[in-house]
Simulated assay, not measured.
Amino acid sequence: MRAELSVRRSEPRQRTGILWWSGQILSWLVLFVVLALIAVMIVVPKLGGATAYTVLTGSMRPQFPPGTLVVVKPTDPGQLRIGDVATYQLVSGEPEVITHRVAGIGSSLAGDQQFIFRGDANNVEDKPVQPEQIRGRLWYSVPLLGFVNNALTGQQRTWLTWIVAGGLIAYSLVMFAGAWRERQEQ
């Protein structure tokens, strides 16, 4: 009697179970959220020449509660209108800023243009603001994202961007390697 050996190829694994689908959905969801956060916080403001700030107080409640990320795009102060939300320097040339709504536009006794701002939740108007103090008009805002913005310094944002980019590249290489391996097994 002769013993016959047959070479049997293993069947490719079917990837259709609930755990596999859950893992796929979760990984794509995490990827989408991370990319969206980077786009909203870093990429879009940089491309638009804008600056991201965090609302720290309740002066702009209910529309902009503390922790809201506000992205401000530079604008000519002459284009500001009553009702616009804008960011201005508390003291000209200093980094501290306030984001409030334009409540009035007028002139000083010397004839210089002035802007009057007031927080939506405030009963009192801010001190008059000179055009050179204005950093820009509100472009867009994202609730709660300001907390993340405050937690990261500029250098940390740069590193985070590089880490996420590297992670995405590594993830794509793993996916390509897995697909290549599956094709070789067929």
Rank of each mutant, 00 (worst) to 15 (best):
N123F: 02
G146L: 07
T54I: 03
Q130T: 15
T75L: 07
L47S: 14
T87M: 04
P131T: 09
V44R: 11
V124M: 11
Y140W: 08
V129R: 02
H100E: 11
H100R: 10
L145D: 10
P131C: 08
P74N: 03
A50W: 01
H100M: 08
D84G: 02
F147Y: 15
T99F: 02
L144F: 14
S108N: 12
T99L: 07
V148Y: 08
T75N: 06
V43H: 02
P131A: 07
K46G: 08
I82K: 14
V124D: 13
G58W: 00
F64C: 11
L80G: 10
L145H: 05
G83N: 06
V91N: 11
V72G: 02
T57I: 03
Q133A: 10
G106K: 01
G58C: 05
P62N: 07
D112V: 05
A86N: 02
L56K: 11
G83E: 06
T68G: 02
L90S: 14
G93D: 13
L138F: 01
S59Q: 00
R81I: 04
G93V: 05
E132N: 11
D126V: 08
D84A: 02
P128Y: 06
H100Y: 03
Y88Q: 06
S92G: 08
L69E: 13
S92I: 02
D84M: 09
G93Y: 01
Q79I: 04
G119I: 05
I98G: 01
R118W: 05
Q79N: 15
I105G: 05
K127L: 13
P62G: 06
V72N: 01
I98W: 01
V85C: 05
Q114L: 15
I98R: 09
I105C: 04
V44K: 09
G48E: 13
V129I: 15
G67D: 10
Y88N: 03
K46P: 01
G119D: 08
N123E: 09
G104T: 05
I82T: 14
P143N: 08
S92C: 04
P74L: 04
S107L: 07
D84I: 10
E125Q: 13
A103C: 03
F64G: 12
I105K: 12
T51P: 00
P131E: 07
V85H: 11
D126C: 06
D126T: 08
T99P: 00
T75R: 04
I98N: 10
L138I: 03
G58P: 06
A121N: 13
E96W: 08
L56E: 10
L109T: 11
F115I: 10
N123M: 07
